[in-house]
Design a protein around this nucleic acid. Structure first.
Length: 807
DNA sequence: CGTACTAGTCTTTTT
DNA sequence: GACTAGTACG
């Protein structure tokens, strides 16, 4: 009996087929990670392959870490020699060694979206690009797509010379690359592209890696873009032992360049490829699988597969409709609480999945009220928070003085009286001398134009220089502590009356413990390596760190995970699928969303609950949306409730309708960039009239159905409007003037006069828990409330923002 | 040079 | 609704 006997026939075949190109089409939950890890073990144990010659590539650090762990378990000896990592860290590792051959320093820095935006902003200024017409974002995403397709600035210019906007983007692209090069920085896309460039320009280096990595495995292959495909193709070109694992039905990253053709055309590129389908699902019940299959079969151009399981039929899918998103959140939190009380359900068995990060907020508030431990994955990355980026900018400056973006970020943080004018003048000087911004600072006394400001620059330079020399004998954490102390960063925060100063300080503490943890796991923790690791972590990598908490995340983040109890929230046309895709002329966009629905459904092991709300607040606008078309694609008998009958089930008709009525201008194209003045609300308004057979329960008041627009006209019946506007309104110190007899409906925080609590009262705060009010200081606009929290200690906060609830 | 307020934008998803 | 960049003012 060997470890391979636990595999089914197909899986075994995939493990044993070690030579030549192999495409494993692995349906959701079909045990692909098991196959990959066993395959690695088989290569080493049975075929005597040197672990050193094996490479496994994934998309997230989490997936890489998981695979590493499982490989370590079954491979015993030499497993640490296998390269198991993400595309990005693989490339960084290669580039750190060889990028000098492309004219960069090997200690390059990695720019995140923020840094990129900063660079682009300056470029637009320099090239006199009107950012109202052509936004930094737009340019950057055009550049990113170009890089995904391995198109360099020169090619881009050739392809877009005839187009006005294209031409400008081409110029910006060229300039952008020049700036990054000057700053010795690479962005995310460069990591892949430059590695490919390296392989193509330096045959020796390529040969070296080809010879080393004789067995290459790629996970989530359906998500690779052209550049990543090329990277793999080059690496595998000599020995052609390339095994890719993927599921075309789970391709959900087109927006970041994923090319579904990579998987669909694999057999064309590798005619000798062996194709193996894994269709037995070990995860979900038959009901869940039937639902998933029923939805995905509406897509065209997919590789035919049908998941099956020998697990039991299972519960029917729970379908719940609500009047408002608020009630939806209330139900989900309540249901989780109920389950955890009565059944053998742990919080960690539950996950709530949604289409957009913004949807997390309502759910979060509700989970807090229920006292359920939860974790929100995604949204803003920890390392993208302002205070964290500030500290990292110090570290980057110490590590690599050529990173102008980092230097400029911190030159006046904390405040040193160095303003825009001085910075611009120093930059001019640097430009004229062809030196970096930091080097210009060091010569500040030479710069005539800045006059007496030079005296403010000198201490800054001295401080950085001091850090640099201390770095020699300091540990990483000592360095960070020194930075915090010398700059007085934390003191400045403490002194400031910014409302979230306490959170910021907490984050800094967390950073410090991450630094310490890094030192503990890395023998010779260098600053460069730390910065690099930090640049490449994604939020999803945190999953598993938190134990026994309900996880809240987007459908995208949920890919690759599984939970006994899954809630799919906000299943409404317009949310999921999003308006963007419904409106799109390209029907493939809806297909991509359908794959996302497929991913969502197949996350559930036992129990799936689908919820949707008639009314939802999006970006300050109330929308009315019908149930998602994807729910309608699920056979009703698989669900415990039916979606409501609609007069006109096809959404496209509404679009035409609105177009006729002049609500829609043609899609913006070319340079014309036609205005699109809040088109969505209009659709929503027109929908609310036509969608439902009977009036939605939430709008007996008539006007309420039309959303905020008409609110001022409503007299005396605030409830219907107030409710969806803010969660748990009745518990909060918000009082409508109507109820005070003033007349007009208002939702202003009324502050000092009408706080629902006083000194000595017990109150609850969203984050800090319960505490006692010590002091209330009335201010002109809002009162400052001092609260001694049981857990979090004493905090001073503005009443209007703190949303304290009397308990 | 720093601040405090206003106007405009945004998001659909992320390594 | 929330965040950010830009502006007017001290």
């Amino acid at each position: 009996m060997s470890i391979y006997d636990t595999l089914n026939d197909r899986q075994k075949q995939a493990v044993l087929q070690t030579s030549g190109p192999v495409l494993i089409l692995a349906g959701a939950g079909s045990g692909k990670t098991r196959v990959l890890t066993h395959r690695i073990a088989y290569l080493i144990d049975q075929e005597g392959v040197n672990p050193y010659q094996i490479m496994a590539i994934t998309f997230t650090n989490k997936a890489a870490g998981e695979m590493r762990e499982r490989v370590d378990q079954i491979v015993g000896f030499g497993s640490e020699q296998i390269w198991v990592s993400t595309f990005h860290s693989t490339c960084v590792r290669i580039l750190r060694r060889y990028i000098d051959r492309l004219g960069y320093d090997n200690n390059f820095t990695i720019y995140d979206t923020d840094d990129q935006k900063g660079v682009m902003k300056e470029i637009c200024k320099k090239l006199q690009i009107d950012t109202k017409m052509l936004k930094e974002r737009t340019i950057l995403s055009a550049i990113s797509s170009a890089k995904d397709e391995l198109i360099d600035p020169v090619q881009y210019e050739m392809q877009n010379a005839y187009d006005y906007n294209g031409g400008r983007i081409a110029k910006a692209y060229k300039e952008y690359q020049a700036v990054l090069h000057k700053n010795n920085a690479l962005d995310f896309d460069d990591l892949i592209m430059k590695t490919v460039e390296l392989f193509k320009t330096d045959a020796k280096v390529l040969e070296n890696y080809q010879e080393r990595f004789r067995y290459i495995m790629v996970d989530e292959y359906q998500d690779t873009n052209t550049a990543q495909f090329e990277l793999i193709r080059l690496l595998a070109d000599k020995y052609r032992n390339l095994c890719v694992v993927g599921d075309d039905d789970q391709s959900i990253y087109k927006f970041r360049g994923a090319n579904i053709r990579n998987i669909l055309d694999f057999e064309k590129v590798y005619p000798e490829a062996c194709v193996i389908k894994l269709e037995q699902n070990y995860r979900s019940t038959q009901v869940v699988l039937d639902a998933a299959n029923a939805v995905i079969k509406n897509n065209t151009g997919r590789k035919e597969k049908a998941l099956w399981t020998d697990k039991t039929e299972g519960n029917r899918i729970h379908l719940r409709q609500f009047d408002t998103a608020y009630e939806e959140a209330e139900y989900i939190a309540g249901d989780v609480a109920k389950k955890s009380r009565s059944e053998q359900v742990q919080y960690g068995d539950c996950a709530v999945l949604y289409r957009t990060n913004a949807q997390a907020r309502l759910l979060e508030e509700r989970f807090i009220m229920e006292g359920i431990p939860y974790d929100v994955i995604g949204g803003t990355n920890f390392y993208a928070r302002r205070e964290i980026k500030d500290i990292l900018a110090y570290l980057k400056t110490i590590d690599n003085g050529r990173d102008d973006v980092a230097v400029k970020r911190i030159i006046n943080i904390p405040k040193r009286g160095i303003g825009m004018t001085t910075i611009v003048r120093v930059q001019d000087y640097a430009d004229s001398r062809q030196i970096s911004f930091y080097d210009a600072l060091r010569e500040a006394d030479q710069i005539m134009t800045i006059g007496r400001s030079a005296s403010k620059l000198q201490p800054f330079v001295n401080m950085i220089q001091a850090f640099r020399s201390k770095q020699e004998f300091y540990s990483l954490s000592e360095l960070v502590k020194d930075i915090l102390e010398t700059t007085g960063y934390v003191q400045e925060l403490e002194a400031s009356n910014e409302e979230d100063a306490a959170d910021r300080i907490e984050n800094i503490d967390e950073l410090l413990s991450k630094v310490v943890a890094y030192e503990e796991t890395h023998d010779e923790a260098t600053l460069s390596e730390f910065l690099e690791e930090v640049a490449l972590v994604a939020d999803i990598d945190r999953v598993g760190e938190s134990d026994n908490k309900v996880l809240l995340m987007t459908l995208h983040s949920a890919k690759g995970l599984e939970f006994p109890h899954v809630y799919l929230a906000g299943l409404e046309d317009g949310i999921f699928p999003s308006y963007m895709t419904i409106m799109s002329d390209d029907p493939l966009e809806v297909e991509e969303e359908r794959r996302l629905a497929y991913v969502g459904i197949t996350r559930a092991k036992d129990d799936l609950t689908i919820t949707y709300a008639r009314q939802r607040m999006i970006r300050g606008e109330t929308q009315y949306n019908p149930v998602s078309r994807f729910v309608r694609e699920i056979p009703p008998l698989l669900m415990d409730d039916k979606p409501p009958v609609q007069k006109r089930p096809d959404h496209r008709e509404y679009d035409e309708d609105s177009r006729e009525r002049g609500f829609f201008k043609a899609k913006p194209f070319g340079m014309g960039a036609v205005e699109t003045e809040k088109p969505y609300r209009r659709v929503a308004d027109s929908l609310s009239d036509t969608v439902f057979d009977k009036p939605a329960a939430g709008r007996q008041n008539g006007e309420a159905a039309f959303g905020r627009k008409f609110e001022p006209a409503v007299q005396g019946k605030p409830k219907a409007i107030v409710r969806p506007k803010r969660t748990a309104v009745e518990n909060q110190p918000y009082i409508t003037r109507a109820s005070q007899g003033v007349g007009a409906v208002s939702l202003e925080p009324v502050g000092n006069k009408t706080l629902a609590y006083g000194v000595g009262d017990r109150v609850r705060h969203m984050r800090y828990g319960t505490g006692t009010v010590l002091k209330i200081e009335p201010g002109p606009r809002d009162s400052q409330v001092t609260v001694m929290f049981d857990e979090a200690g004493q905090k001073i906060m503005y009443a209007g923002f703190a949303k304290l609830v009397k308990v």
